[in-house]
């Protein structure tokens, strides 16, 4: 039995070593199915995370998914005298927001944090966004915890390659991925219009791990005395009407802090959206103007 235990421990250590070494050697080749290391994904997440370290003292810092980085345009906020930075990224769930919040918010030092919450995203497992994040954001302990919490082997193996690689490689340090239309984390989408499609009724199913992560985010902000709000951005009416438990979702969000959902009655599904859940630039201009005047500026004035 002792011999068995000794050999098992030795073998497990060797397995760990062998896996780490081979993943390090082969992870960048693209041969390993479960290592999906890609820079330039997550819509400028790399640039945002890098830029955020140099931005100091903005009025508002945004977190959230594409609904955040496609909606909050710094040019419109600047017209109202509000400085902002957008740390939203593709499919970013509260699990990933937590990492960015813990590592980057202290550097940005915002007066107000806005966490964009979306009924679909809160039901995502966060795997895709976790992969974006481990590849494009500098390694940190909150990232390691986030990787463990996903309980997904592909995320873990990608992290096994990406974390040491991003710590030491010049490729990561010197990478550039800015796209046209990028400004302080906001990414302007090519102008387009949505043709409304009928929608089957759907339920919003927030995942427990996302709610826990959201709770950790709000507790972290409260512990540091950083004012924050939760904000749901507009979706098309066809999409909103298809959620039969939207009221439950919104009342749930009130449990996590000051939650706002301020739809603008002038927004039209065909004219102001480029797909069912993203505003086009005309919609962005209307909505940002409205949300600045009716919500952000009054809150900032009260601080």
């Amino acid at each position: 039995m002792k011999r068995f235990a000794r050999n098992i421990i030795l073998f497990l250590l060797l397995t760990l070593l062998f896996t780490v070494v081979l993943t390090g050697l082969l992870g960048g080749t693209g041969w390993l199915r479960n290592v999906s290391y890609k820079l330039d994904v997550g819509d400028n997440l790399y640039t945002k995370a890098k830029e955020a370290k140099t931005v100091q003292g903005v009025d508002v810092l945004f977190f959230g998914s594409s609904h955040a980085y496609r909606t909050f345009d710094p040019r419109i906020f600047a017209e109202k005298g509000v400085t902002m930075f957008n740390l939203g990224s593709s499919n970013q769930t509260p699990m990933q927001s937590e990492v960015l919040l813990r590592t980057l918010a202290p550097k940005v030092n915002p007066r107000l944090v806005v966490i964009e919450v979306h009924p679909d995203i809160i039901g995502h497992d966060g795997i895709e966004a976790a992969l974006f994040q481990v590849c494009n954001v500098s390694p940190s302990w909150p990232m390691v915890w986030m990787v463990c919490r996903t309980r997904n082997w592909r995320v873990m193996m990608t992290a096994l390659y990406a974390i040491p690689h991003n710590m030491w490689s010049a490729e990561f340090k010197n990478h550039k991925d800015k796209q046209e239309g990028y400004r302080a984390g906001f990414l302007e989408h090519e102008m387009g219009y949505y043709s409304p499609q009928p929608h089957d009724p759907a339920a919003i199913r927030p995942l427990p791990q996302q709610l826990k992560a959201l709770r950790r985010c709000t507790e972290w902000l409260q512990a540091r005395g950083i004012p924050y709000i939760l904000l749901e951005v507009p979706d098309t009416k066809v999409l909103l009407d298809s959620y039969y438990n939207i009221d439950d979702f919104q009342s749930l969000m009130y449990d996590y802090g000051k939650f706002y959902f301020k739809p603008l009655s002038t927004l039209d599904d065909s004219l102001h959206f480029y797909n069912e859940d993203h505003l086009n630039q005309q919609g962005v201009e209307l909505y940002d103007d409205y949300i600045c005047d009716s919500l952000i500026v009054p809150i900032l004035n009260d601080l």
């Binding site: 060797l14 397995t15 062998f18 896996t19 199915r33």
Partner: peptide, 18 residues
């Protein structure tokens, strides 16, 4: 023998459905 096991484990970990 151990080399073969380690390689097999690495192949499983690298290519399995997650």
């Amino acid at each position: 023998r151990w080399g073969a096991y380690l390689l097999l484990i690495f192949i499983i970990l690298s290519f399995m459905q997650t």
